[in-house]
C-alpha cells in the first residue's frame, strides 16, 4: 500500500509516515481511517501523520486519530503528528485531544520521539 486519493505513505525504517494531501473534513477523514486501519491490519505499530499540506481538520478526523493512537499503544507502538498549523493545533486543544495524541513541530522530531 503506497497511498490513496488523499494520503501518501512512506517508510523510515520501521515507521510509516502518512502525508495527508487534503483538508480533513468528514469525506477525507474516512480515507484517513481506511489507511490507518489497513496499517493496523498489517501489524504496523509506529505511525507518523504529516499535516504539512492540511489547513483544516474536523472532530471526526481528530476522533479517528485518537482511536487509532489508543489501538497502536495497545500494540506497543504509537501515533505521532507533525507539522500542524496553529489552527489545527487549536482544534486538537479545544477537544482536549492534544493530551492524548502527541504533536511535534517537525517530522524529524516526531520520528526521534519513538
Amino acid at each position: 500500500m503506497t497511498g490513496t486519493e488523499f494520503m501518501n505513505i512512506r517508510e523510515n525504517q520501521d515507521i510509516k509516515i502518512i502525508d495527508v494531501k487534503a483538508d480533513l473534513s468528514s469525506y477525507a477523514a474516512s480515507d484517513l481511517r481506511k489507511v490507518l486501519e489497513e496499517l493496523l491490519t498489517e501489524k504496523v505499530n509506529k505511525v507518523v501523520v504529516n499535516f504539512e499540506d492540511v489547513g483544516h481538520i474536523n472532530s471526526t478526523a481528530v476522533g479517528t486519530l485518537v482511536g487509532i493512537a489508543k489501538r497502536l499503544r495497545q500494540n506497543g507502538g504509537d501515533l505521532k503528528l507533525c507539522n500542524l498549523t496553529s489552527t489545527l493545533t487549536r482544534t486538537f486543544n479545544l477537544i482536549g485531544a492534544s493530551s492524548v495524541v502527541e504533536i511535534y513541530e517537525s517530522e524529524k522530531s516526531a520520528i526521534a520521539a519513538f
Binding site: 474536523n58 472532530s59 471526526t60 481528530v62 476522533g63 479517528t64 485518537v66 482511536g67 489508543k70 477537544i95 482536549g96 485531544a97 493530551s99 492524548v100
Partner: peptide, 9 residues
C-alpha cells in the same frame, strides 16, 4: 471525553 472518538462536534 478527550479520549473519545466521537461526541466532540
Amino acid at each position: 471525553s478527550p479520549t473519545s472518538e466521537r461526541g466532540h462536534g
